[in-house]
Amino acid sequence: MTETAPPSAPSLPAVPAAPGIWRRMRLWGVAHAVDDLYQGLVPACVPYFVLDRGYSYVAASGLTLAAALGSAVPQPFVGLAVDRWEMPRLAGIGVLVAGLGLGLSGLVDSYAAVWTLILLSGLGVALFHPAAGKAAREAAGESAAAMSVFAAGGSVGFFLAPVLATPALIQLGVGATVLFVPPALIVGLLLLRGRSARPGGAGAVRTGRDRWGPFLALTGVEVVRSVAFFGVLTFIELYWIRHLHAGRGTAGAALACFLVGGVAGTLLGGRIADRVGSVRTVQLGAVLAVPLFVGLRLAPGPYAPLLFAVLGGVALNIPFAVLVKLGQDYLPGRPGTAAGVTLGLAVSVGGLFAPVLGAVAQARGPEGVFGVLWVLPVVAFGLGLLLREPGADVAP
Rank of each mutant, 00 (worst) to 15 (best):
A152I: 05
G153N: 07
G154M: 08
V156Q: 13
G157D: 00
G157W: 00
F158C: 14
F159M: 14
F159W: 12
A161F: 11
P162W: 05
V163D: 12
V163N: 06
L164R: 04
A165N: 04
T166H: 08
A168N: 01
A168D: 02
L169P: 01
I170T: 10
I170H: 05
Q171Y: 12
V174Q: 00
V174K: 08
V174M: 03
G175K: 15
A176P: 09
A176G: 08
A176Q: 02
T177K: 04
T177C: 04
T177V: 11
T177F: 09
V178K: 14
V178A: 10
L179Q: 15
F180P: 13
P182K: 08
P182S: 12
P182C: 14
P182G: 09
P183L: 10
A184E: 07
A184T: 12
L185D: 06
I186A: 12
G188L: 11
L189W: 13
L190W: 15
L191N: 06
L191S: 08
L191E: 12
L192V: 10
G194M: 02
G194S: 00
R195W: 07
S196R: 09
A197M: 12
G200P: 03
G201L: 06
G201N: 05
A202H: 02
A202I: 09
A202W: 10
G203W: 05
G203Q: 01
G203C: 04
A204R: 12
A204L: 05
V205E: 06
R206P: 11
T207E: 13
T207S: 13
G208H: 02
R209T: 11
D210P: 03
D210M: 06
R211F: 13
R211T: 08
W212S: 10
G213R: 09
G213C: 08
F215N: 01
L216T: 11
L216E: 02
A217R: 03
A217V: 00
A217Q: 06
L218N: 00
E222S: 15
E222L: 11
V224W: 00
V224D: 01
V224L: 05
R225W: 04
S226P: 10
V227M: 11
A228Q: 08
A228P: 13
F229W: 07
